[in-house]
């Protein structure tokens, strides 16, 4: 059984449908990527799973089963108990995710007290161990520092330390390296990889960066306009991208491993241009291969291990 199984997830804010029927699953110890551009619904998906969407503004439908239990039907208290020991989340902006007026050490021991019942010196020792684990030099001294005294990379490490304090079975990382420099990003990705390998933590990686996905993920789900448009094992996806959107994304990024000055072939238009388009395939207005059947109705997600949502995939390939 999958550790996390998201089925037909739909989230809307009033009239706006942010997530429009997303299915995917994460197995124990697996790294799964949700990749897409801004507005594709990837962050909303993760917040919905964690139960962190504002209840009044967002209406959530569908199911997210963690260990067979539907998270959406859990009472709030139960959900809160799951956050930490089972589900943990790392956000893009480490500064706003940390309490600015509380010392680093206190923020970690708080979690240890609440979820692992540790007190006093034991908690302190564990906090030092955790900071050391995420590669923070001189951890004992750092305990007394405040978030603003740390660099962006260090803050992200602290945040990861807090997230893994309870050895969660699933870690959701929402663009954890986007705000960081590339050499710092490499450090953090290395750390995440190491956590997955040594602790067996499953990781749901949310990112816009196909490079990050390629280096880290086992399974990849490409999101466009609130739907999964392609889903496949990472190697398969990059070797044989099938959906025109995935192909377009790959053709849009300049690459260091291709001959220099290779021309880029961008996707035309932008997602903002086609708000209000709801006939058939959401990508149709920007697609080079668009044909009559594309607007006949919404294409289903087809395929077994390598799934895609394009009715013309065979003809084009």
């Amino acid at each position: 059984m999958a550790l996390l199984e998201v089925e037909d997830l739909r989230v809307s804010f009033g009239e706006t449908r942010a997530v429009d029927g997303v299915d995917f699953q994460v197995d124990e110890g697996q790294v799964v990527g949700l990749v897409g551009e801004s507005g594709c619904g990837k962050s909303v998906t993760s917040l919905a799973i964690m139960g962190l969407l504002p209840r009044r503004a967002a209406s959530v439908a569908g199911a997210a089963r963690y260990d067979g239990v539907d998270l959406f039907s859990l009472p709030r208290g139960e959900m809160r108990r799951l956050r930490g020991p089972d589900l943990a989340m790392v956000f893009q902006d480490p500064l706003s995710s940390l309490n600015p007026v509380v010392q680093i050490g206190r923020q970690i021991t708080e979690v240890l007290e609440r979820h692992r019942g540790m007190r006093g010196e034991a908690a302190r020792k564990e906090a030092v161990h955790l900071l050391d684990r995420v590669g923070i030099p001189d951890p004992a001294r750092r305990l007394g520092e405040y978030p603003h005294q740390l660099s962006g990379g260090m803050r992200q490490r602290v945040l990861i330390a807090i997230s893994v304090a309870c050895a969660p079975r699933l870690l959701i990382a929402d663009e954890p390296t986007t705000a960081l420099d590339v050499t710092i990003q490499a450090q953090i990705l290395e750390l995440l990889k190491d956590l997955v390998d040594s602790e067996g933590t499953a990781l749901l990686m949310i990112t816009h960066d196909l490079g990050v996905v390629a280096g880290l993920c086992d399974e990849v789900n490409v999101l466009y306009s609130g739907r999964v448009v392609e889903s496949a094992p990472a190697r398969d996806l990059f070797a044989r991208p099938t959906h025109p959107y995935t192909v377009g994304l790959l053709n849009s990024i300049p690459r260091l491993d291709l001959p220099i000055h290779e021309p880029l072939r961008p996707i035309r238009g932008s997602i903002a241009d086609v708000i209000g388009w709801n006939d058939g395939c959401a990508f149709a207005p920007r697609c080079d291969r668009v044909a009559e059947e594309c607007v006949a109705g919404e294409p289903p997600l087809i395929g077994a291990a390598h799934m895609h949502r394009c009715v013309r995939a065979e003809e084009v390939a």
Partner: peptide, 9 residues
């Protein structure tokens, strides 16, 4: 479709 693309452009 054309109209949307046009409006978007």
């Amino acid at each position: 479709l054309e109209r949307l693309v046009e409006a978007g452009a």
